[in-house]
């Protein structure tokens, strides 16, 4: 299993930012998700976040909502998510699960942490789990040695940034803008300031997500952050492709463009 610590140490040694790609399990199909994620890794993603499809994704924009809806319609279950993690982890990328809290809560925190670790997962990102409510999950994760990544936002005052990073291991996820997921014309102007404010309180790597979708944007973010997170832009390539092969080709092309971006 490749850990986040290994990924960021290597990226630092290469004097570049890490590239992190997101894809929901079960999208476009069960096996298709592993194929797309593998293409993302081959094109240069260091870390893959496998999304756990959830019926009420209130932080996600239309592209991810669409993909998640398809995954749920495909009948994707937690066992499928774990199987996807297992398949992707074999590529050598550090593999995380990104999920809203309720599916873990229902599955059981200790059980999910154990099953994720056994599948080769290296941690989770939980966007609606606040520091106040995160203690059971941090305990369960620490017990099996997986990381817990939480988010800071442009609206976060210093006290909140401190509370969030106290709960984080692996890296800190800095939301580049006030809004939902989705590629945008420009990365939020608040992102750099947020990274700097966060950096003042932690030695953990800080990665920027929301709204990043091009090599140029990746290069810009790589100028001040330790990692660049891209989700909707990859999904869009798959959604817009007429068939599986051209979808994979488009994902590889985007991955290569972003990988060049994070290398400045």
């Amino acid at each position: 299993m490749t850990t986040l610590q290994t990924v960021f140490a290597k990226a630092k040694a290469d004097d570049r930012a890490a590239l992190i790609g997101y894809l929901p399990a079960g999208f476009p199909t069960q096996d298709g998700a592993i194929a797309v994620a593998t293409a993302m890794v081959e094109a240069g993603c260091d870390v893959i976040e496998i999304g756990l499809p959830y019926s009420d994704p209130l932080m996600d924009g239309p592209t991810i909502q669409d993909a998640v809806h398809r995954a749920l319609t495909n009948g994707t279950r937690i066992a499928d998510v774990l199987r996807t993690v297992e398949g992707v982890a074999k590529t050598g990328a550090a593999t995380l699960v990104m999920t809203y809290w309720n599916p873990i809560d229902r599955y059981g925190a200790e059980r999910f942490a154990r099953d994720l670790a056994n599948a080769g997962g290296t941690g989770t990102i939980t966007p609606d789990l606040t520091p106040e409510e995160s203690e059971p999950w941090r305990t369960a994760s620490a017990a099996v040695g997986i990381d817990t990544v939480f988010l800071v936002a442009p609206s976060s005052p210093e006290t909140r940034i401190k509370a969030v990073i106290d709960s984080c291991t692996g890296f800190v996820y800095a939301a580049s803008l006030m809004g939902v997921t989705g590629a945008r014309e420009s990365v939020g102007s608040a992102a750099q300031g947020l990274v700097e404010r966060t950096r003042a309180h932690t030695d953990l790597p800080i990665c920027v997500g929301l709204g990043v979708g091009t090599g140029r944007q990746a290069a810009e973010v790589a100028g001040y952050a330790d990692g660049v997170i891209v989700g909707s832009a990859f999904i869009r390539r798959v959604l817009d492709a007429p068939d599986e092969a051209s979808g994979l080709a488009a994902v590889r092309a985007l991955g290569a463009e972003l990988a060049a971006g994070v290398r400045g």
């Binding site: 209130l58 106040e132 976060s156 939301a175």
Partner: peptide, 12 residues
């Protein structure tokens, strides 16, 4: 009860 929301909404 409590709060299970994106961190961005906590200040609001």
């Amino acid at each position: 009860g409590g709060r299970y929301v994106p961190e961005a909404l906590i200040p609001a």
